[in-house]
Amino acid sequence: MHLYHHFVCAMLDEQEVTPIQEQLQQFQALIDQKHLHKNQIMKSLIFMASGSNDIFSYFLLPDASKLTPQQYVVTMLKQLSLFVDKTYKVGARKFVFFTIGPLGCIPGRVIIRGAPTDRCMGRMNLMAKQYNEGLELFIKSIPTKYPGAIGVYAVVYNTVQKFRANPKHYGFSDVSEACCGAGSLNGELQCGLKGYKMCSNPNEYFFWDSFHPTQRVYGLLSKIATIHLYAPRCFLMDLESANAHIKSLFIFGDSIFDPSNNHFVKNCTIQGNFTPYGSSYFLHPTGRFTNGRTIADFIEVYHELAKDSRNGFPANGVNFASGGSGLLNDTNKDVVR
């Protein structure tokens, strides 16, 4: 499926990344302009993956927030609840949420003062797990709080830890360093910038750059991430026969899903639109923050909505995701990475 993701971003004069609240404004603009209708939205899947950048920024800029980790997580979850409130009101009924992975294990942690290089950063992983626990509780409440709505919870954290605990079983030779970058763990310099180095076998690496997995990891996650369903069993049928039941996909979030939207955002410095990004699949940079396809690309193939390309924009969906964005409006507004 081709999601016509450039349509909205090219229209708006955005600065830096596009947080979830602004992605929702873009979604609402399509509704107001009569490009989208409630009946279509009700038959669509809403995908959401956000929160990693919020937590990373909490540790990178410790003086920027006066909240405790617990208070910060509660603030994030409130924004998630507002997201569901707004999308539900315009017709959304089927939600798929992705948990935050073990963020304290990414190579990019080395730019945080005091972060260990010989092990994961426990405090960051703990905060990610606290958010995931809150997310799970919230999703359990969806059928009650939002009549007719159902939610799916994709367990990324535990799945990634399985990869890390037994890397050879999953075909990985390195689950600590980035394939592309420089410095400690190849996490001190963004892939592609002057002075970077790149591994010769990206498929054997878990991390592509300081922050993002390789294409191979995204492919594995799209297939084997544990799904927790808090809904009537009929939703499983919807997922298994997407062509018959799912009209389109609407995707919100960060670089896990961003197909190149940041490339079209004026003055946005968080980019993946240069060599060697995209080199393992597209053979050229596309704006995706990995060496090939993202998890959104694999999801689109899984649902096979591309079979009827005549649907066009926005009948088969829109990807609003913006790399570096967060649930909180201020996340990465002033941070370049």
Results as ranks from 00 to 15, higher is better:
K194N: 00
I100T: 10
H35I: 03
H5S: 15
G317T: 12
Q15M: 07
L60K: 09
Q21V: 05
L239N: 10
D63E: 15
T331R: 05
D118R: 09
C199G: 13
C268L: 09
K162R: 11
L12W: 14
P102F: 10
E16K: 10
M1P: 04
L249A: 03
F27T: 02
H37V: 07
K162Y: 01
F207P: 02
N267D: 13
V217C: 03
L67C: 04
D63G: 03
S248E: 13
F27M: 07
E240I: 03
Q15W: 12
V8E: 12
G183V: 07
C120Q: 05
Y205E: 00
K38G: 04
F172S: 03
Q21G: 01
T275N: 15
Q190G: 10
H169C: 06
G323V: 08
Q23S: 06
T117D: 08
L60G: 02
H2I: 12
D254C: 14
V110S: 01
S57P: 11
N261D: 06
Y131F: 15
A315G: 13
S280W: 05
H5F: 15
K94V: 00
I299D: 02
R233C: 03
I295W: 05
I299T: 08
S241L: 03
L249M: 12
N158S: 13
I295E: 03
K66R: 13
R119G: 10
D334H: 14
F264Q: 10
C268W: 02
I227E: 02
Y58P: 12
D330E: 12
F211M: 08
V8Q: 11
A242R: 11
D238S: 05
V160D: 01
S255F: 09
F313K: 04
W208R: 01
G171H: 10
M124R: 06
F138I: 04
L12S: 10
F207T: 02
F250I: 08
A115N: 01
S57R: 09
P116C: 07
N316A: 10
S280I: 08
S325G: 12
E14D: 06
V8M: 13
N203L: 12
L283I: 08
G278C: 13
F7W: 12
S260E: 14
R310W: 14
G171A: 08
F252D: 10
K223D: 08
M124V: 05
I227F: 05
T269A: 14
R216N: 09
I112S: 04
Y277K: 14
V265W: 01
V301D: 14
G287V: 04
T294N: 15
T18S: 06
K43H: 08
G192R: 10
F27N: 02
T159C: 03
M124T: 04
V318D: 09
A244Q: 13
N158I: 01
P202R: 04
I150R: 13
K145V: 02
A10R: 15
S184F: 07
G171C: 08
K194T: 03
R164V: 11
F172N: 03
V90D: 01
F97C: 02
D334T: 06
L135R: 02
N332C: 12
P147E: 09
F95N: 01
D308N: 15
Q190R: 14
Q26K: 05
L12Q: 13
T294K: 08
Q15I: 07
Q190L: 15
A225L: 04
G134T: 07
